[in-house]
Design a binder for these strands. Structure first.
Ligand SMILES: [Zn+2]
Ligand SMILES: [Zn+2]
Ligand SMILES: [Zn+2]
Ligand SMILES: [Zn+2]
Lengths: 168, 168
DNA sequence: TCTGAAAATGAGTATGCTTATCAAAAGATG
DNA sequence: CATCTTTTGATAAGCATACTCATTTTCAGA
């Protein structure tokens, strides 16, 4: 498969961990984005990308560190800052506990989050295309009115996940 | 003016600090919501509500403490947890620095946030009614599909505020 | 209006996530 | 290979927030 054909895989529901053609594409794109800011795609950074791609939902730093014994906590913190700055990883800020990370949009299809206020778990969901589009143009208009230069939007639905509903 | 008439004041643009009829209504509703969870509407809690209502945009805890010399930092932290639990204040979590707080939805009309990624400032904006409604029903459908019990949604537009555009 | 139990306060301290430090290791350059 | 630069990782430090507990305030009941 050639690079950049954009064949969409759906490895799990509701979202694939990434929607680039093959795993190689993920690493090539990550390396390219790091090069753009004069950073190397080192083994440690590659392992983090690997773990995030395999998870398919946002992970905390302890989860990332725990899933690969070669990863040192301090380096994971430092490298996630670098990966975020390079546009490879995205930080998901929830009100409690640890921050969570997932691969950024070119690696992951555009989506939003269901955030459980009890256990902190985060799951992905997508909006219908029409809703997303009307939302997007409304946001552009709102930003323009305020002189705000938008880069991205975040939409979270907060509530209680099925597990916590059953528990409490 | 009688309580609960719901006359809408617009004290500033784009959003009034609260849209209940008069200031007295704010405190009565706050007291009622605290009573519901067996908490008292003490002087310190009243001062916090006062400061948040006067600000008209989300404040950090240092800002709240600094705006009223009678407020102790530890009590403000503790009371904001209580006010949040009572449904009087809402915590706005941005990726950097301090959390920010504003009055909750019955005190404030429903709105969303422009978050500056450079300086952390948060401003309010509202979506056109139709967009908000189609978004809301799409969110309800998405939650139902996942067995998720939704309580609220958060929509942030991230980017650079006019000041930071000029500076950087 | 007293009175006493329960709740709230606030200054200080502890917790714990995150980031800075810095010597060692790895990689680039030529 | 020699040298310079970047990255690593164990440790320490920083810092927002939560906890502690003696004191103060509140409020229901006498
Ligand atoms: Zn949950
Ligand atoms: Zn996600
Ligand atoms: Zn700004
Ligand atoms: Zn707001």
């Amino acid at each position: 498969m050639t690079i950049g054909t954009g064949t969409v895989f759906h490895l799990r529901s509701p979202l694939a961990s990434y929607h680039l053609g093959v795993k190689q594409d993920v690493h090539q794109l990550a390396a390219q984005r790091l090069r753009r800011i004069s950073q190397r795609y080192t083994a440690g950074r590659r392992r983090i990308v690997e773990v995030l791609a395999a998870a398919g939902h946002p992970l905390t730093i302890p989860e990332i560190v725990g899933s690969d014994s070669d990863l040192a906590t301090s380096s994971v913190y430092r490298n996630l800052v670098t990966l975020e700055h390079a546009g490879v990883a995205t930080r998901i800020v929830t009100s409690q506990e640890h921050a969570r990370f997932e691969l950024s949009e070119p690696f992951n299809r555009h989506h939003h989050h269901l955030v459980c206020v009890d256990c902190g778990k985060v799951d992905d969901f997508i909006l219908p295309k029409g809703v997303e589009e009307s939302l997007d143009s409304a946001l552009r208009r709102a930003a323009q009115k305020e002189g705000f230069a938008p880069t991205d939007h975040r939409l979270d639905l907060t509530g209680t996940c099925p597990d916590c509903q059953a528990a409490g």
